[in-house]
Design a protein around this nucleic acid. Structure first.
Lengths: 209, 209, 209, 209
DNA sequence: AATGAATGAGCTTTCATTCAT
DNA sequence: TATGAATGAAAGCTCATTCAT
């Protein structure tokens, strides 16, 4: 009731709705969330949702798109184009983790909700989610390609992107249990783990891919 | 149609139902899947599902439990108790990836579905899912603890477990796109990546956590 | 069809629904009645019933409350506060019988349905039904307390209330078989029977309780 | 498990089933009670119920019949054919109340459950219930007809029968709240109340029926 | 621009009832 | 005689979606 105002311009209302929808979707999941809940959380009535975003799927699509864009922008903004590749990867990963830490709900909607296939989530939505993975993949690729010696394959880069996403997922779970963790420490940990693992296994498994 | 027989003993039917449910849940997700679909896929009628498993959630619970057990058994069977820690980790990871590769649907239900949706899944189910993560964590911990020098913290071990899960997720996506990949090559890749990453970043980031 | 209009305000529709529900409940009983039937009888669709009254039990509760209120009001309106106790009892009983005669279906729902079935009826509903009995009990008590000599115990008053309800039940059955009966004649009969019974048994059973 | 025996003669099994059914029906009501519950309470399997009594309605019918018979026998046995009419009424009423007190569950099934019309309860069942009312009515009639002066009409007698049933209903409710009450005291109370009422109202309402 | 009123379709769940052994 | 296995039918309830104002 507090923020419920009449006659707001369309753009503002739409953003309010998406904000509310992300909150609701992240809490209940796409199917459990009801349009009623979303409308309520946005402080408006159900028909407004349909007038503005067309359908429940439309609402979800809008959420995915907006948050994917925000995440990409954040990562890109953190990466200085002229920096050294390692530096760019480092900055990009940290920005990525930071975004996930700061926008837990967005990440949940973006990464965890959008997976189940055979859904009303159109291919379009699936692709939006992919753009994020691709961005990270590209970051990894560019960080290694320039260097001599260790050219990384596309496949390996994709694996690394997924690993990063896995770490991000872990991060979302920890923010509740370990409030002392920060994105920076997580980035450090991940790198550090790679180092440790490398030292251990290098002799044991001589060649790798 | 081939094996579909009437009047099967309870135990058999129950397993058939769980098999079918995993298939359906992995395709549509918990909420989108309907009990009717599951019954149809199992070649029986809806009431049987309720008579044997009690409720839709009961069906899901049964799936999670059975597959978690199978996965754990598989991993444990692969790990020779007397082998060297590194060897044990290597064998365990490979068995893990192999299971995921051989049982894509089970993994999707076990890992993706159980996270996605809100809260209807009882604590018991949540814990079943955790047992898998814990097993991997334990494997990592034991593989590093015995060695001098690089004692890994619990937190780091958990991160590694999540990373492994992330890699497993990646695996499930690849089986469709890259049929030439095998669990063994994936295991190699992951280890190799760690090595590469370590070489790259060791000088850049001296200490890590 | 005559009054069936679309887009009625909530209050009106709600009353229509309760009217219909009383009709249906009195005919089929709580459990046999289906929400679909009720909706049909009210000329609306099932979901409206749930939007407005929440659940089948909610519908029943609403019926009980409204009719209990109406019955109590009717009885109270008939009893002049300043009249003599006997006069008040007489007037109250007659109003009570009149209500039952005029609202057979309400009485059936109020008295017969609410007793029959197990426990799904919340305590609240049970109490609503009790209020009716208590009103009659109070009437009886006040009609006898003021007089010297024959103070009636609470227990006796409760028995009398039940007896009155039994008579009311009889009335509902007669309205089909004996259309010539009126509430007034019934009231007379009941009183008359008491007189006759008293004359007969006074010598036979000297003391009573 | 304790009483579950195999190969019992049909007659015994049937009675066991009816015993169990009365228990279940009185607790949950006809519609809420499930055949499964009844079978369980009887210590047998569902198909047995159908083999012996044909259908759920058949079970209910059987209960009604048996208990109506038992009640009628009890009342008839208590009434000495050669006693004075007042004495016969007194004895009959007391036996009636005693039966209700001793067989609360039977009375609930017999009187409270069987009312809702439009039920699967065939006319036959309805008539069984009526036989009880008629027996009491007859008792009242015979107790007054023989006496000079106060011939009671059939209608009045029916009203009295219903009143007695109302009192019996009250009795069932009291057995839980007032364990000190006995059928005999209730009989006394009812008679006593009639006397009191008569004294009060005779002068006030000169005419009666 | 905004909403209260209304619904078609579908879901989970239950139950009386039968079949095959 | 006795029962585990199995189901058709229907009920309660919810939800995405539209209409009329």
């Amino acid at each position: 009731m507090s923020t419920k105002q009449r006659r707001l311009p369309r753009e503002v209302r739409e953003q309010q709705m998406i904000d509310a929808a992300i909150r609701v979707f992240s809490r209940s999941g796409y199917h459990s969330a009801s349009v009623e809940e979303i409308a309520e959380a946005a402080g408006i009535s159900k028909p407004m949702v349909y007038i503005y975003l067309g359908s429940k799927e439309g609402v979800f699509t809008a959420c995915i798109h907006r948050e994917a864009d925000r995440l990409l922008e954040t990562v890109r903004a953190a990466v200085e184009p002229d920096a050294a590749p390692e530096q760019r990867l480092w900055a990009g990963l940290q920005a990525f983790f930071q975004f996930v830490a700061d926008n837990r709900e967005s990440w949940i909607v973006l990464y965890q909700q959008a997976r189940t296939e055979g859904e009303p989530f159109s291919t379009e939505v699936f692709q939006a989610r992919c753009r994020v993975m691709e961005e990270i993949t590209a970051l990894v690729v560019s960080s290694t390609r320039s260097t001599e010696g260790g050219l990384i394959s596309e496949t390996d880069a994709e694996i690394l992107a997924h690993i990063a996403a896995g770490a991000a997922d872990a991060l979302t779970d920890w923010l509740l249990a370990h409030p002392e963790e920060t994105p920076e420490t997580l980035t450090r940990r991940v790198i550090g783990l790679a180092v440790t693992a490398a030292r251990r296994h290098t002799p044991a498994e001589p060649a790798g891919a």
